[in-house]
Amino acid sequence: MTTFTRLHLDPKGRQTRKLLGNPQAMHAAVLSCFPKEVGDKERILWRHDGKLRGSDEHAVYIVGPDSCDPSKIAEQTGSENVPQKASYDRLLDALANGQQWHFEVVLNPVAAKKTPGAPRGTRGKLTALVGEEAQLEWFSTKAKSCGFTPLETLIVERKTLRFSKLATNPKGRQVVIGTVRYRGTLQIDDAEMFKKSLVEGIGRGKAYGCGLLTLAKPKASTSA
């Protein structure tokens, strides 16, 4: 059984700011919500959304096995908000070809670029794509392999994340990831492939908050 969890965090706390400011630290906190053997074997997705409308609170979404215990993060951050946890399978079972949904997702759009003079067959170095046209084209292509077609897509946020690989050593080896937040409307073309993408995530950088696609019904305010 797969579950969807939503936590609201107040950034006033020191530990909360640490998690929100370092994807490696947040990744560790999310994994702490699951038994170790689950994190070693199954895909766990998460995403951080910034200030929610009308408040300073931030949201963290988690998709993973039913063994998720979101109170672990609440305990670390001292949050008094009760985490919301619901079955994700009900949504997955309701998906079908031809359906249209509003969506939001943070992704790490990259492309392999070969070094001039490199031997034939050598895979190029993965490089972050820049520019709206390239990022939208990449998303459209990626969508086809995930079972859906973007009907309308907006890029609403771009960030370059820089953080230490070791959350306990801020001055350690740095990780740099370029993220793009896409928002719009999609149509499901292959429901089974689409469900797999929702559970396993899209693209690279999943450990650092990328790849989790959330859905909302058109003309409705509730999201999945």
Rank of each mutant, 00 (worst) to 15 (best):
E37Y: 13
Q135C: 13
F4G: 00
E104L: 10
S32P: 06
D40W: 11
P170K: 05
I155T: 07
T2Y: 15
R43D: 07
G147T: 04
E42M: 07
S55P: 00
T16K: 04
V60N: 00
V63I: 14
A191V: 08
V106H: 04
C210Q: 05
E152A: 15
K18P: 00
E157S: 13
G201M: 05
T122N: 05
V110S: 03
L126G: 03
K144R: 12
Y88V: 04
K165L: 10
V180T: 15
T77Y: 06
V38F: 10
A25K: 06
H27F: 05
P23V: 09
T149K: 11
A29E: 01
K51Q: 15
G78P: 06
L129G: 04
L107R: 07
I155A: 06
F194A: 01
A134N: 11
K171A: 03
Q187H: 11
G211F: 08
M26S: 03
S87K: 13
I44F: 01
D69F: 09
Q76C: 01
A224E: 02
P11D: 02
Y182V: 09
Y88S: 07
A118N: 00
P218K: 04
G98K: 10
R162Y: 02
G54C: 06
D66R: 14
T214E: 01
Y61K: 00
P65F: 11
G211H: 04
A207V: 04
A118F: 03
E157G: 03
S32L: 10
T3M: 10
D189I: 09
A143Q: 02
Q24L: 02
V106R: 14
T3P: 02
V175M: 10
E57Y: 15
L215R: 07
N169L: 12
D40F: 13
N97R: 11
V60L: 02
L107P: 02
G50N: 12
R90W: 12
G50Q: 13
K72S: 10
T185N: 09
M1V: 12
K142Q: 14
C146V: 02
F103E: 00
A74M: 15
L95V: 14
G50C: 11
R14D: 06
E137F: 11
P65L: 11
R158L: 09
G209P: 07
S71L: 14
E80I: 14
G205S: 00
T2Q: 14
T222Y: 14
A96Y: 07
S67I: 02
S79W: 03
N22G: 00
E133M: 09
E133L: 12
